[in-house]
């Protein structure tokens, strides 16, 4: 028998261990056929299709997409990044919820988050800058869509949904703005709420409904909190689902120009 060096034997053991693990019952129960995580994945057109088709990814992506659509310069990935930022905000937001009470204690909680809690400052910053970034990216996405004329038939309705998504994004950002309960928060929201008060006909009611009263108080804080962490995310997820679904049903990405 040929004598193997120690190194080769280790390598062999490692390969056979990974192979039997990746080919084992557990892994094949988790990953469906065609997954790159299964044993024996080879890069073939068939497997490339399976990677999408046999996985949960199929809910988001078709197996094949137009060639020009994958050029980074076409979409600049802006829609995808809007969605991704939303996910980042959801994750960091849930984390923040562990340390935050939407009462008179809100301000203290944020202070504690910044000073006492491990990574508190980083996560808060990510949530805040991520929110600003999302408003910006969604806006840029809309501009991209406009300049491509991508709202034209058959995509008219997806534009309508898009505008709703933009409004929801702004509302999410705006409701979040109040939560730190500092001077910046309360007065920015007061200014914004007053602007809502200038809405024709229903202005006064809109403002009262928004503030849960005549001005920003802790009642407003609770209201904004519920809107911010529950109601608006719930609504925006529904609209996003429809938005993505329509992108596919309208024949994938628009263009080429």
């Amino acid at each position: 028998m040929q004598k193997l060096s120690l190194r080769d034997r280790i390598k062999e053991a490692r390969v056979s261990a990974t192979d039997s693990f990746r080919g084992g019952k557990l892994m094949s129960s988790i990953f469906r056929p065609g997954s790159p995580f299964r044993k024996g994945y080879v890069d073939s057109p068939r497997n490339r299709s399976y990677v999408v088709m046999n996985n949960v990814l199929y809910h988001l992506h078709p197996v094949k997409v137009k060639r020009h659509g994958v050029r980074l310069s076409y979409t600049l990935c802006l829609g995808g990044l809007s969605f991704f930022l939303f996910i980042v905000l959801t994750i960091t937001g849930i984390w923040l919820m562990f340390y935050f009470r939407p009462t008179e204690l809100a301000y203290v909680d944020i202070q504690a988050l910044q000073t006492d809690i491990a990574f508190g400052s980083l996560v808060r910053n990510m949530h805040r800058w991520g929110a600003h970034l999302m408003v910006l990216v969604v806006f840029l996405h809309m501009s991209r869509v406009f300049y491509h004329g991508a709202y034209k038939a058959p995509r008219e309705f997806n534009w309508v949904i898009g505008v709703i998504l933009l409004l929801l994004t702004l509302l999410l950002s705006f409701t979040g703005y109040l939560l730190p309960w500092d001077q910046l928060a309360i007065w920015a929201v007061t200014v914004g709420g007053n602007m809502a008060g200038y809405t024709p006909v229903i202005g006064a009611q809109a403002k009262f409904g928004l503030f849960a009263g005549l001005e920003a108080t802790t009642a407003t804080l609770l209201r904004f909190y519920v809107l911010h962490v529950l109601f608006l995310p719930f609504i925006i997820v529904i609209f996003m689902a429809v938005h993505f679904w329509r992108v596919r049903k309208d024949g994938g990405i628009s263009g080429p120009l």
Binding site: Q111, R128, S173, D182, Q183, I186, W187, G192, M195
Partner: peptide
């Protein structure tokens, strides 16, 4: 990220500005 003094309805900053968007 900014965190100013605690909210105080009686002290209006000048100017009071909305979020940038």
């Amino acid at each position: 990220a900014p965190l100013l003094e605690e909210a105080n309805p009686n002290v209006t900053p000048n100017p009071a500005k909305a979020p940038w968007y």
